[in-house]
Design a protein around this nucleic acid. Structure first.
Length: 942
DNA sequence: CCTGACCTAATTTTT
DNA sequence: TTAGGTCAGG
């Protein structure tokens, strides 16, 4: 391979220990693992006077790393951006760095904050770090943004007048709430779809725009109404003592901004902040990081006065603590969550956001063959506005990519199954080496059907989420209503589930009372006797229900563990009885799911109940290993008494929590430490089996069934969406459904060339304020994101990559023809060995024997599967111009223009349906996309 | 207040 | 295809 491209031209800012380490490293390959091992100890001693406690075998943290990786691991002094290409070992760098910080730079683990994108990634990192540095890893904060923020909020939310027992609303809850809001405001649901409104609100929150500001910024009527809905939505959230996912970040930022002394606490406490997948952070998350790590102490002028107050409080503010060292790692080419507000601006502007920052580039790929990388590069290079970066590998070319054109999604799945079996026979692959990727969860179905039939073991990751199933949501709603009386949404969800004779009327009566008295629905429920004209039967049923809820609230107060409360709720509510008495076979599954939930709760409680009480505390042994200076430092950072290891700060900390709440230990359903201050033990999750803790876990940790658990899934083929695949790698990857409208997804295609028109649609308006200028790009932003998704998918493969598509795909019960994915065209032909070029059921123009399918496809974007828009050849069986009735039915193909009597000019995007009843998806611009029945629609082909 | 028939709409990705 | 929502009737 060519010369190693890692040496950065910039002058590095070096700290003493970095220099020490660098001195050990011969410029490049010269340094062997042994020399490092041998030399490491004495030199390190310079920066830490004492040998480390616990005779943990010395691990060479730099072994096997290339110079750029080492540089990243050792970096000190300035904020640093590690631009890491796919498969360049960034996770490795992060874990090694953390271990290095703790093991060599003597950073206390309690002062490390590492942010990962998913909970799973957090768990894995925790695990890997623990392998390197042992149990001390427990003291670190390694979590997602959301989990970290919730922990901060739980300590200090009361400063905002919210209770620490707040509920966390997920998207489904938010949706429900927004529907209520829309109802109340009387907004036309046609013009203000819940989905779009939520998306809009979410964007506001990501941009840290509160509803008042949003209202003041509104220029159009639509914006004003959006803002009004936002305001009402927030009001209801607050009333329910709830936060939605976006609030968790936004509120944390507001908290830190509103209380500078609090922010300073965290700035002192965290000495190192590391963020993985930085390309997937949104604006709010960026600001959060900035608040914690910016070198400019107070960026907002408004903070200046407060900082002084900070001094008055007697905190050691003249002891001007350096902000935490920041390291972010990311790859803008793998940014696939822009739809959710992530912005690569954060990466692109890192150096101006954090003055003095430096960038380390990791371009060597350790995962894939050069062939695979070439394909990935060829695809991603099509995106404009991207910093050039080329991955290279020393792994050799490896086999060609295999291409396959299937007749149907079924055929596609069969090919995949056959191929896996074949590989397994020949190459001694395990099933676990293989992954099948698809764009949408629905596509897993065909694979499952086939895999089941041929007896291939598989595992679907993701998919219909456990916590989204109705029965699970019901159970959770019960628990939330019990834990948080103000949680109207949850309470009303289960008010009459299972049926207990409380209908709309009774519910409305309670709601009226609540509105009149300005109390929560839950409180009103306890005062039904104040309702006039309520049927006695209804009143009795309501009272019974209230008693049921009271009894369980009492259990919470008495500290009954979560699993018992759950079990009691399900039984006493009659929920289990209703399901087990049902004929519906689906209900059986529901029962099983509930059983599983109970199991989850049980496990949670078992884990949360400390076996060895000292596990999560700073033990004497821990302290014994620290030098006096370290102890002093520790005291400064964490407020832990160096003598006892106990929290010494409750009294001295600024009022961090509502005294009423912390005074009585028994009544705090959260079981949190007495004050909200920063304890060292807070580095580890509190061993808390309470209901509140369980709900928090449920809200934040989406999936109970996780991804490859090495041993368990060793013999199992993994099926997952491309998004889920991020961060994983497999020997053999099947990237399936490579058809325009499937992947890239239909929605990303609609906007192509139509961005100007699209802006009037509320959907796009909701996604409005993404970064750069809306220049005339060839591809829409959405399409570029799809392309990055393709890039992610391709780069998951280590050795073998398969690209497949189906000529006919049944979507929602109707067969659909889609042209090949444009991403296929973008991969150089020489990299692909087409096992099968065309479907048996269609006749394609094939200009020459050697012509690749792509040549044909390239002939026309949009001509779709029709080998020419004339339709004369009647290639597709589903769309023949053959039988026809009295009326002349136009034969349509993607790309055709049509005139509709009502919607005007439109462009055919795709076709579907059957001979008898052909359908066409037509884009009418501002009128949106319509699926028309070609036979009946008032259209004329142009 | 409940049930069942009908109709419709919506189908991306995740904390 | 299906999961929800609405409506009429019991």
């Amino acid at each position: 391979m060519s010369a190693a491209p890692h040496e950065s031209a910039r002058t590095p800012v070096r700290s003493a220990d970095e220099l020490a380490w660098e001195a050990l490293l011969s410029p490049d390959t010269g340094s062997t693992a042994e020399s490092l091992l041998g030399a490491a100890d004495p030199k390190v001693g310079e920066s830490a006077e004492q040998p480390r406690r616990r005779g943990r075998p010395k691990v060479d943290l730099l072994a096997g790393l290339n110079p750029a990786q080492r540089e990243a691991v050792l970096h000190a002094g300035s904020p640093v951006l590690v631009v890491a290409g796919a498969g360049s070992g960034k996770t490795r760098v992060l874990t090694r760095r953390i271990a290095y910080l703790v093991g060599e730079r003597k950073v206390h683990p309690g002062s490390i904050l590492a942010i990962t994108f998913t909970n799973k990634a957090a768990a894995e990192m925790r695990h890997r770090v623990a392998d390197l540095i042992g149990g001390r890893a427990k003291l670190m904060w390694i979590s997602t943004f959301h989990s970290a923020c919730v922990r901060i909020l739980r300590s200090d939310i009361n400063r905002f007048g919210l209770s620490r027992t707040f509920s966390i609303y997920d998207d489904a809850d938010s949706k429900r709430l927004m529907q209520l809001v829309l109802n109340d405001l009387g907004l036309d649901p046609k013009k203000y779809p819940t989905r779009a409104l939520l998306s809009w609100v979410s964007n506001q929150k990501n941009e840290l725009i509160d509803h008042e500001t949003a209202a003041s910024l509104a220029t159009s009527e639509q914006d004003r109404n959006n803002a009004a809905a936002y305001a009402e939505y927030q009001r209801r959230l607050a009333a329910a003592n709830a936060l939605d996912f976006d609030d968790i970040i936004m509120t944390t930022v507001h908290l830190l901004q509103a209380f500078p002394e609090l922010r300073e606490q965290y700035r002192r406490r965290f000495r190192h902040v590391l963020v993985d997948e930085y390309q997937d952070t949104n604006h709010a998350q960026y600001v959060l990081i900035r608040e914690l790590c910016s070198t400019e102490l107070s960026d907002a002028a408004g903070h200046a006065g407060e900082t002084e107050r900070d001094g008055e409080l007697g905190r050691d503010s003249e002891h001007d603590v350096e902000p935490p060292e920041l390291m972010v790692v990311g790859d803008s080419d793998q940014s696939i969550y822009a739809f959710r507000g992530a912005t690569i601006r954060n990466i692109l502007d890192f150096e101006s956001d954090f003055p003095g920052a430096r960038t380390i580039l990791l371009e060597q790929n350790y995962r894939s063959t050069q062939t695979i990388l070439n394909a990935a590069n060829a695809v991603i290079v099509q995106n404009e506005n991207r910093k050039p970066k080329r991955l290279w590998s020393e792994a050799g070319d490896g086999p060609l990519i295999t291409g396959y054109v299937a007749d149907s999604e079924h055929d596609e799945a069969q090919f995949v199954a056959r191929e896996i079996d074949k590989l397994r026979d020949e190459k001694q692959l395990t099933y676990g080496d293989v992954a099948v990727f698809y764009r949408t969860n629905a596509q897993s179905r065909a694979f499952e059907e086939v895999f089941i039939r041929v007896g291939m073991p598989y595992k679907v990751v993701g998919g219909v989420r456990f916590y989204e199933r109705r029965e699970i949501r019901d159970a959770i709603a019960y628990l939330r209503a019990i834990a948080n009386r103000a949680d109207d949404v949850s309470l009303r969800r289960i008010l009459n589930v299972p049926k207990r004779g409380i209908g709309d009327k009774a519910e409305g009566a309670v709601a009226d009372l609540a509105a009149r008295e300005r109390i929560s629905f839950g409180d009103a429920l306890r005062r039904v006797d104040e309702i006039d004209g309520l049927a006695t039967r209804s009143a009795r049923l309501l009272t019974d229900f209230a008693a049921f809820m009271d009894a369980h609230e009492a259990m919470v107060t008495n500290g009954v563990p979560a699993d018992q409360i759950l079990l009691s709720v399900l039984e006493k509510s009659g929920y289990l009885a209703e399901l087990s008495g049902s004929e519906d076979p689906q209900d059986e599954t529901r029962l099983e799911n509930l059983q599983e939930l109970i199991g989850v709760a049980r496990e949670f409680v078992a884990e949360a109940t400390p076996v060895a009480p000292g596990d999560f505390e700073l033990t004497a042994e821990d302290l014994a290993g620290l030098t006096a200076e370290e102890l002093a430092e520790l005291a400064l950072l964490t407020g832990v008494d160096p003598q006892t290891g106990e929290l010494a700060t409750a009294a001295t900390m600024p009022a961090a929590s509502d005294p009423g709440e912390s005074a009585s230990e028994g009544s705090d359903p959260d079981g949190e430490p007495e004050d909200g201050s920063l304890s060292l033990a807070a580095g580890a999750p509190e061993p808390d089996p309470s209901l509140g803790a369980f709900l928090e876990r449920v809200a934040l940790v989406a999936d109970s069934d996780q991804i490859p658990d090495t041993n368990e899934s060793a013999g199992v083929v993994t099926l997952m969406t491309l998004h889920t695949a991020k961060g994983l790698e497999f020997d053999t990857v099947f990237l399936t459904g490579l058809e325009d409208a499937v992947f890239p997804h239909q929605r990303s295609l609609q906007a192509v060339g139509d961005e100007d028109r699209a802006e009037s649609s509320s959907r796009v308006a909701a996604y409005g304020r993404a970064g750069g200028a809306g220049s005339k790009r060839r591809d829409s932003k959405e399409l570029e994101e799809e392309r990055r998704l393709a890039y992610v998918g391709i780069t998951r493969a280590q050795q073998r990559l398969y690209l497949t598509r189906a000529v006919v795909r049944t979507v929602w019960g109707t067969p659909q023809h889609n042209p090949p994915s444009r991403f296929l065209n973008e991969i150089p032909e020489r990299l692909i060995d087409w096992r099968r070029l065309q479907s048996a059921t269609t006749s394609w123009r094939n200009t020459s024997a050697t012509s690749r399918s792509q040549t044909t496809w390239r002939a026309r974007p949009g001509a779709g599967s029709y080998g020419g828009s004339g339709g004369a050849d009647g290639g597709s069986p589903a769309f023949g111009s053959g039988r026809r009735t009295a009326k002349e039915v136009p034969v349509l193909a993607a790309g055709d223009k049509v005139l509709h009597t009502r919607f005007g000019l439109g462009k055919v995007i795709a076709t579907s349906g059957s001979v008898e009843d052909p359908r066409a998806d037509v884009d009418f611009g501002s009128h949106g996309i319509k699926r028309l029945a070609v036979r009946h629609a008032p259209i004329e082909k142009l």
